[in-house]
Nucleic acid binder design. Structure first.
Ligand SMILES: [Zn+2]
Ligand SMILES: [Zn+2]
Ligand SMILES: [Zn+2]
Ligand SMILES: [Zn+2]
Lengths: 174, 174
DNA sequence: TTGGTAACGTAATAACATTACACCCAATCA
DNA sequence: TGATTGGGTGTAATGTTATTACGTTACCAA
């Protein structure tokens, strides 16, 4: 399939992250940079252990899980990376400082990941939360299905349940 | 915290599931029934291994992970149970044959889980999906934060990030 | 009754994530 | 400058969640 979709692949660049970190007075270390570079080099969601192996290749030495997870934690905290819960995987964020809801359309067939802004979602959530006094923090919206490209393929059997095969190293929990 | 919230605790009963399975011509076996009973006996999301241990208690013998996961798979396939992705855990569904979007409000402080119907979400998803030919299957909407009860507590520091402690055996990934 | 299929038991392993502690290094300050 | 301090990283061990593979059993239909 292709990387085409509702939003440009990724608007995030290393340079912009560098700048934002400087503004915020936080350290964009070599390791964190390498991790983000690795994530950008993949086309889709990347598992922590895949990132780990990518880091090993870049560094030429072995790295432990905490190293990968710490880098991911930093990148998530600052909005540069989003965890895809239904894939146990991570992608660079399209909108690092956007307070809005990032909704993810995830193709079960090819693994393609589309981050889209769903205006109106925010309001709907807030309004409903208000009715019972819930204070909303992190929002997770993930919509699984079949992308346009894969629907043109005979192999795309159903809107539910096929395993992702290409474009990602991650499996699916459909 | 309390079990109060936007919808009654659970509208699902063993009897209704029994009836639905008969209608659909699928087998509601002893194991599947025990698994669902166990899930209903918990107050919140239940991890697969907690379910496993509950099954062991009920059966008086040890059971392997596949046994628990197969029961969960069946219950999910038929809409009786929903997986909470951000908790790696499972809850009985409030609306087993409702095609609408079940959104979950999850308290990071006490673990309380509220399933609510968000009408309008469905339309928003469908409309956006249509614009790029995506065919939506499973929808995951999980909103983490702090419930009303916990906001009345000094310990509820922020709308983000506290670990769930009571009412659930599950941890949090913030 | 027999043959086929869905369900289950069991062992092993894979995949994902965290804890604990030691070490290093850069920024701050006596 | 030397000491202190805190964040960041290295490493080993462990914990948690999920799947694969394969043999057996139970149910149903021909
Ligand atoms: Zn494809
Ligand atoms: Zn696709
Ligand atoms: Zn609460
Ligand atoms: Zn509470």
């Amino acid at each position: 399939m292709s990387g085409s979709g509702p939003s440009p692949a990724y608007t995030l660049s290393i340079e912009s992250v560098e700048r934002i970190c400087a503004e915020r007075g936080v350290r964009f270390t070599a390791l964190r940079r390498l991790a983000l570079e690795a994530l950008l080099e993949f086309n889709g969601p990347v598992g922590a252990y895949d990132l780990l192996r990518a880091l090993e290749r870049k560094l030429g030495k072995s790295v432990g899980p905490p190293t990968a997870y710490r880098a991911l934690e930093f990148l998530q905290e600052h909005g540069f990376v989003t965890r895809i819960e239904t894939r146990n995987a991570f992608v660079p964020s399209s909108h690092p400082d956007d307070p809005g809801v990032g909704a993810f359309f995830l193709c079960n067939h090819c693994g393609a990941t589309f981050e889209v802004d769903l205006p109106g979602l925010e309001a709907e959530f807030a309004r409903r939360a208000e009715t019972f006094g819930f204070r909303v923090g992190r929002r997770v919206v993930e919509l699984q299905g079949i992308c346009a490209d894969c629907q043109h393929t005979a192999a795309a059997v159903e809107g539910q349940g096929q395993a992702a095969k290409a474009m990602t190293t991650k499996g699916s929990r459909g």
